[in-house]
Computed example of a mutant assay.
Amino acid sequence: MRFSDVPPEQPAVPRDAATVILLRDTDEGLEVFLQRRVAAMAFAPGVTVFPGGGVDERDADASVRWTGPAASEWADWFGGTEPIARSLVCAAVREMFEESGVLLAGTDVGVIGDAARYAGERRALESRELSLAAFLAGAGLTLRADLLRPWAHWITPVQEERRYDARFFVAVLPSGQHADGATTEAASSGWQRPEDALADAEAGRSILMPPTWHTLSELTGFDTTAEVLDAERTVETIIPKLVREGDQIRVIVGDE
């Protein structure tokens, strides 16, 4: 983590980003899909995260066929303009497909089952050879915005050199689909109960950034995916503060 002890006069402009909290129900309770980023990543190397990433300028393509809440509704939930909201929803769907193989898209008869048939398109999306709009149009698919829910809005502290304006979405693993770690950005991937993921971090077996830790803590209060989807949320913008205490860096969230 590289940052200045004194907030800069001109902080770096945060890049819009989308993060997806992917959930499933199991006999052992609610589980969330997590990935440990490879050590070579410029941002958060070796850190355990939810799937997600920065918005691509092509995510704003208005030609994407879409069902579910309109961009205007997402703009109300997250704040900002309709074009940004559209880009964020498209980025959420694209990034989750690239990083986990889970595709929130469907045909006239419902959500697709196994998305492995689109493995080639997935690689092309990750390499930026293909846009989400071109992929969906070529496959005759419709983006299913109704399978997403708004959850949170985090902005990287002003002291950091690399900053993101990240909106967090919630989604449930569609029936017949499988989440994997077939991405160049993840060293490992898998499902965990939120409380187990937190225990790993507390024991030093993994590293969590504040938004991930906070979100996992929130999820421990739910038993099923239905409860999460039905939760009433008011999305408020959170910008943590970084304070140096000796050799340690303390992260302050809210009015602490």
Score class of each variant (00 low, 15 high):
residue 228 V to H: 10
residue 24 R to Y: 03
residue 217 S to E: 12
residue 226 A to M: 06
residue 184 T to I: 04
residue 227 E to L: 09
residue 244 R to S: 08
residue 88 L to V: 05
residue 97 F to V: 04
residue 114 D to T: 02
residue 117 R to G: 14
residue 35 Q to W: 00
residue 1 M to R: 09
residue 147 L to D: 12
residue 179 A to Y: 03
residue 25 D to W: 08
residue 37 R to G: 09
residue 148 L to D: 05
residue 185 E to I: 14
residue 128 R to M: 13
residue 8 P to H: 08
residue 32 V to P: 07
residue 11 P to W: 11
residue 214 H to P: 00
residue 199 A to N: 02
residue 20 V to E: 02
residue 95 E to K: 11
residue 165 D to C: 02
residue 200 D to L: 14
residue 246 G to D: 08
residue 227 E to W: 05
residue 113 G to H: 12
residue 55 V to F: 03
residue 67 T to H: 00
residue 29 G to C: 04
residue 242 L to C: 11
residue 239 I to W: 09
residue 21 I to T: 10
residue 48 T to L: 11
residue 225 T to C: 15
residue 135 F to Y: 01
residue 223 D to H: 13
residue 165 D to W: 01
residue 121 E to D: 10
residue 22 L to E: 14
residue 120 G to R: 00
residue 28 E to R: 12
residue 253 V to D: 03
residue 90 C to S: 15
residue 88 L to R: 15
residue 11 P to H: 08
residue 76 D to T: 14
residue 14 P to M: 11
residue 153 H to I: 06
residue 31 E to H: 10
residue 165 D to P: 00
residue 239 I to K: 12
residue 82 E to C: 06
residue 54 G to W: 00
residue 127 S to E: 14
residue 206 S to I: 05
residue 96 M to A: 04
residue 195 E to P: 01
residue 203 A to V: 01
residue 101 G to H: 11
residue 116 A to D: 13
residue 151 W to F: 07
residue 182 A to L: 14
residue 129 E to W: 01
residue 237 T to W: 00
residue 184 T to M: 01
residue 186 A to P: 05
residue 57 E to Y: 06
residue 61 D to Y: 09
residue 16 D to A: 09
residue 249 I to M: 06
residue 215 T to A: 02
residue 186 A to K: 10
residue 36 R to P: 09
residue 122 R to E: 00
residue 192 Q to A: 14
residue 230 D to P: 04
residue 85 A to N: 02
residue 240 P to E: 06
residue 73 E to I: 10
residue 69 P to E: 01
residue 113 G to S: 14
residue 53 G to R: 10
residue 227 E to Y: 06
residue 26 T to Y: 10
residue 197 A to F: 10
residue 3 F to K: 13
residue 108 D to V: 07
residue 33 F to N: 07
residue 25 D to C: 09
residue 6 V to I: 08
residue 38 V to R: 09
residue 222 F to Q: 03
residue 246 G to A: 04
residue 4 S to L: 10
residue 144 R to H: 14
residue 127 S to W: 02
residue 97 F to S: 05
residue 19 T to R: 15
residue 33 F to D: 10
residue 254 G to L: 01
residue 213 W to I: 02
residue 250 R to E: 09
